[in-house]
């Protein structure tokens, strides 16, 4: 394998009984890249992650993580990987320092090394002055940062963030991402699964997974450009009623709530705009504003997923 590839996956497939959770996925992640892994719930994201971090064996296909084979060298992979899961994995009845010391021990670091690295990661995540506090009493945002600290304690070249920021407030998420950027700059490869679209925008490249298949791959800009439809942003006064009406119109690829308005995807923008005015007017729904907008990543996500679902 080439030295600049952190993760290489070819035709990865996992079958549970009759259910194909992951169906022939292939992709590559470069060293130092922030790589996004997107898809609706149950699309096969977690199953793929579990095959990459050595928890699950693939039914067929192959791959390497940090240069180690995902089938034969699971132990080596685990040693070179940091993993932060969506569920809070630290121990609430242990202090900040005790949690770090535990994970250090599990990764085989010496006591001196644990001490040295603890100071480094704690200063990175801004928890140096809270080492003696019980982890369970920390606010969620800080717990998340401690989880990050314990995931990078053993200096892994690759870090998996599996919906690591779910439930965390926006400011904490922002701080968290600053740390992630910082690590990527140092050459750490980062694999992210998330369902926050703003977080997906932070990624260098993304793959989109739906029903176990990889349906799109590229930079956020490329994915947005791949949307064939045009997007009309409508701000009606009765959101739910308007959505009902719009969904019944012809030539609509997809209509969904977006903030305080609706995003309507269509291939025939002019006709749709006219049809929209007419249909909403007939129901006495006032339109506060309407106009065309460039597709957001969420539009791209919805458009690409529904198209994949139809074919």
């Amino acid at each position: 394998m080439e030295a600049d590839k952190a993760i290489v996956v070819q035709n990865l497939t996992k079958v549970f009984g009759k259910f194909k959770a992951v169906d022939g996925i292939s992709f590559e992640v470069h060293r130092g890249e922030i790589f996004g892994f997107l898809g609706p719930n149950g699309a096969g994201k977690s199953t793929t992650i579990r095959m990459l971090n050595g928890l699950l064996l693939p039914t067929s296909g192959e791959g390497t993580v940090a240069g180690y084979d995902i089938i034969r060298q699971q132990d080596r992979i685990k040693q070179h990987l940091g993993y932060m899961s969506q569920r809070f994995s630290l121990y609430g009845d242990l202090t900040v320092a005790e949690n770090l010391s535990f994970f250090g021990g599990v990764y085989g670091l010496s006591a001196a090394k644990v001490k040295e690295r603890s100071q480094e990661v704690l200063s990175l995540v801004g928890l140096l002055d809270r080492q003696k506090e019980l982890t369970g009493l920390l606010p969620l945002g800080l717990k998340q940062r401690l989880a990050l600290a314990s995931a990078i304690l053993h200096e892994p070249p690759i870090l998996f963030l599996d919906e690591a920021t779910s439930g965390v407030d926006p400011i904490s998420r922002r701080t968290f991402w600053d740390m992630i950027y910082h690590m990527a700059e140092q050459g750490v490869t980062i694999l992210v699964t998330t369902h926050y679209m703003d977080e997906a925008e932070f990624c260098d490249r993304l793959v989109l997974i739906s029903q176990g298949r990889l349906i799109a791959e590229g930079t956020p800009r490329e994915l947005k450009a791949a949307v064939p439809e045009q997007i009309i942003a409508v701000y009606p006064d009765r959101l739910d009623d308007a959505l009902e009406v719009i969904k019944k119109l012809p030539d609509i690829a997809e209509a969904a709530v977006f903030g305080t308005g609706l995003h309507v995807a269509t291939l025939k923008a002019d006709q749709t705009e006219a049809a929209l005015r007419e249909a909403l007017g007939a129901q006495q729904i006032a339109i506060k504003s309407m106009g065309r907008v460039p597709p957001s990543l969420e539009d791209a996500f919805i458009s690409l997923t529904t198209r994949a679902g139809r074919s």
């Binding site: 971090n53 928890l55 132990d75 685990k78 993993y83 569920r87 994995s89 599990v106």
Partner: peptide
């Protein structure tokens, strides 16, 4: 139950 098993198993333990 508390969800820490998944994390433990992704370490070399």
């Amino acid at each position: 139950e508390r969800g820490s098993m998944e994390s433990l198993m992704s370490t070399p333990l």
